[in-house]
């Protein structure tokens, strides 16, 4: 997990099996940085699994920074399917 901050934007490059522990770590790291208005990007290309804590974290981030300012990038089909099934696909701008 890598977090870069600059130009009013936080970019989190995530990878691998994103379980509860990883989600908590990311949440802690973001809580210290998040302010409104601020854009947040999760780079998801190398993420192979997301747990429910990660979905909750996404909702939390979207709520803090505003839906339009939260972006998931490089989502792979298996993860995209998770967001579709969870009914959360409209929450995020994904490219």
């Amino acid at each position: 997990m890598k977090i870069d901050e600059g130009d009013g934007k936080i970019v989190c490059t995530l990878e691998g099996h994103f379980d509860t522990l990883q989600s908590q770590e990311l949440e802690e790291a973001l809580k210290a940085r998040l302010k409104t208005p601020q854009a947040v990007v999760f780079e998801m290309q190398d993420v192979t699994y997301v747990c429910s804590a990660f979905l909750r974290l996404c909702v939390f981030v979207a709520k803090i920074v505003g839906t339009g300012r939260f972006t998931l990038l490089g989502v792979t089909p298996p993860i995209k399917r998770v967001f579709k099934m969870a009914g959360m696909s409209d929450l995020f701008d994904r490219e």
């Binding site: 989502v75 792979t76 089909p77 399917r81 579709k84």
Partner: peptide, 13 residues
């Protein structure tokens, strides 16, 4: 291929 499958998921849903 990944983007194409993602597009199909969007259409499917």
């Amino acid at each position: 291929f990944t983007d194409a499958v993602n597009r199909c998921i969007d259409l499917n849903f």
